[in-house]
Nucleic acid binder design. Structure first.
Lengths: 199, 199
DNA sequence: CATCTTTGTTGTCAATGTCAACATCGCGGT
DNA sequence: ACCGCGATGTTGACATTGACAACAAAGATG
């Protein structure tokens, strides 16, 4: 591709990547479509060919985030556990992976769960979020199947687990832990939760 | 006070209240200082006498939110429990109160925990947040003192509890619970967590 | 009653998001 | 090979907004 071609080539991806890094550095409020266009070397109205408006770009960013989160969680929970120890470890890994993702891109996580997404985009966002929920549920079910934890509605258990991970991640990325290392809190959370699932 | 006085009388409070209701209705992004000024019947630059900039108003809103949350949690956890049942009930009430607050003003909660606050304001926000954390810890300590739950670093336990409440609140207000009633999930979370604290 | 501080007003500016009208590119059908 | 058309990018415009400066009125304080 020539250095100066009328068409950019892959503006959509360029914009998304620039936006993703921008929000982590300057916050989501400081994001400017015109600035993104300048950085990409295109005119100020070019982004509108790929995103109807600013909100649409944020929606796409959030959806991307959910997909990446799901990929990250999936990687941490592959294979079926055969022992209680293994099941417990999978649970730990899931928690660590979630909090790791959050600490690596806190603003994106915040955006993913923000309430400002357009109703039209919400459908896709919920679907993308469900993938992560389903992974959590899979870990719970696998643990139940080998008797590593007691019975109980796996959906509710998974929801509470997911919520706990999310809460710890938010507190950690918000700097509200006062001295307590995030990793320690993740361990405590995982232990308490696993403990509560026995019986 | 005359209907038309040059001075408004209590513009600061008026702005905060209007802003609080506006963000819940239209989202925090749609908040406009000039619109607030119009609604209050003052000129477009009047708000700057009370808030250095828009962020300062959002910071004040968040701090107010933390104070109201703490007040709400405090009301739900008054008095010292004497029996294990009472201690458990206090814990439940705390969880319910937190989630209730979140569902009543989801956007405000989101704003409170957002990462965009100015460094200067963060100090006060953290202090205001600590009050709620301290309340949670008090409930944990009280339960430990009468042997309703096992030992363990009360700070960490309280942090995890707080995180769990917060996570459930976020999922609930984000509509990510799929059919599962929020109250049910709160009960499940509380039960699992309490269970994990035995030993 | 004089003065100083607080509060509110008017005018202005640059930046932004969005839209409409126009330009260029590249691909597929004939 | 070419031509038409959709996709992509550009230019120009506009209303809104947050922020600032200079000024005005009100109220408190001596």
């Amino acid at each position: 591709m020539p250095i100066h071609s009328y068409h950019h080539g892959d503006l959509r991806r360029t914009l998304l990547e620039a936006a993703a890094s921008s929000i982590e550095i300057n916050g989501v409020d400081a994001l400017s479509l015109r600035q993104l266009a300048r950085d990409a070397g295109v005119s100020h109205a070019a982004p509108s060919r790929h995103f109807r408006d600013k909100q649409a770009l944020l929606d796409a960013l959030a959806e991307d985030g959910f997909n990446r989160l799901a990929a990250s969680l999936e990687e941490a929970t592959q294979g079926a556990p055969t022992t209680s120890t293994e099941a417990r470890r999978r649970f730990d890994d899931l928690a660590r992976s979630y909090v790791g993702f959050a600490l690596a891109q806190p603003t994106l996580l915040s955006l993913m769960f923000s309430l400002k997404h357009a109703p039209s985009a919400r459908v896709e966002l919920l679907a993308a979020g469900h993938a992560s929920m389903a992974l959590t549920m899979r870990v719970v079910v696998a643990a139940q199947e080998i008797g590593a934890i007691g019975p109980g509605d796996p959906q509710r258990i998974a929801l509470v687990a997911f919520a706990t991970f999310h809460g710890v991640a938010i507190l950690a990325s918000g700097g509200l832990l006062d001295e307590v290392p995030a990793a320690d809190l993740v361990a405590t959370a995982s232990e308490l939760f696993w403990n509560g699932l026995q019986s």
